[in-house]
């Protein structure tokens, strides 16, 4: 996949999907700037030659810091992977205004701000590719997720609008919609919460949850020149989960 020698900015790169993506891009010869608010895991990435920036998605000054770093590197920003976000459950009646604002502040406002920054950089360079990490919860109904799903729905809509606006300037914008992905946090939940294991493993078509690498591969494809004619799309990486539960005993 042709991300070789391209400058790629990846947010939420300290763990999970973001980290797998940063490692995959680096392995394919991209020059990676990894952003996260957690300093310690970033240091490990720095040891493998990745440029790291400690930064918070809710910080309005983050684009400025990134602009300085990009100027220092002296290469146009070709790829943005807008991965940073927060997750969590809660039905509407269990979600306060404050919690809702937190989802929106990180998953929508922070992502919007970085996308605006990247578009500016890419317009100057004559094109680029943006991949937003949405969620399968942006596309199908699921229990116990109101604020998070609403924020990811906004990401899905923004992806289409940006693709329409900036296509003429050579900027492609796509999304991935991951299903349940195994990270240190979710692995614990899948182990300890029986209902989660039942729905996401036992009743999923492939009988497994996804790995961060599964999503990283899809992001790398959409970001690369191989996907030059793909824009405004949302690619589900969910093992077929959103097409319907598939109870083991009822193969009908």
């Amino acid at each position: 996949m042709t991300v070789e020698n391209k400058l790629a900015l990846i947010t939420g790169a300290a763990g999970g999907i973001g980290r797998a993506t940063a490692e995959l891009f680096a392995a394919r010869g991209a020059q990676v700037i990894a952003v996260d608010r957690d300093a310690a895991p970033l240091q490990e990435l720095a040891q493998s030659g990745i440029t790291t920036i400690i930064g918070d998605m809710t910080d309005p000054a983050l684009p400025e810091t990134l602009a300085e770093e990009i100027t220092r590197i002296g290469k146009p920003l070709a790829i943005l992977v807008n991965n940073a976000g927060i997750g969590g459950g809660g039905r509407l009646d269990q979600t306060s205004d404050e919690e809702l604002r937190r989802y929106m502040e990180v998953n929508v406002v922070g992502l919007f701000r970085l996308a605006r920054f990247a578009v500016g950089q890419m317009q100057a360079a004559g094109g680029g590719s943006i991949v937003n990490v949405a969620s399968i919860y942006a596309e199908v109904g699921a229990q116990n997720s109101s604020g998070y799903s609403a924020s990811k729905g906004a990401v899905a809509a923004l992806t289409r609008q940006m693709a329409t606006d900036y296509g003429p300037e050579g900027i492609r914008v796509n999304a991935v919609a991951p299903g349940l992905i195994e990270t240190p946090l979710t692995a614990e939940r899948i182990r300890t919460e029986a209902w989660r294991h039942e729905i996401f493993v036992e009743q999923s078509p492939m009988r497994r949850v996804g790995q961060p690498q599964d999503v990283a591969q899809a992001i790398a494809f959409l970001a690369s020149d191989e996907a030059a004619f793909i824009s405004g799309e949302s690619l589900r990486v969910d093992g077929g989960w959103a097409m319907g539960r598939y109870p083991r005993e009822a193969q009908i």
Binding site: S231, G232, D238, G240
Partner: peptide, 15 residues
């Protein structure tokens, strides 16, 4: 881990 999907490769025409 991708299955059942139809990926539109249309340059955004269907937007």
């Amino acid at each position: 881990f991708i299955t059942g999907q139809t990926l539109l490769v249309d340059g955004g025409r269907s937007l």
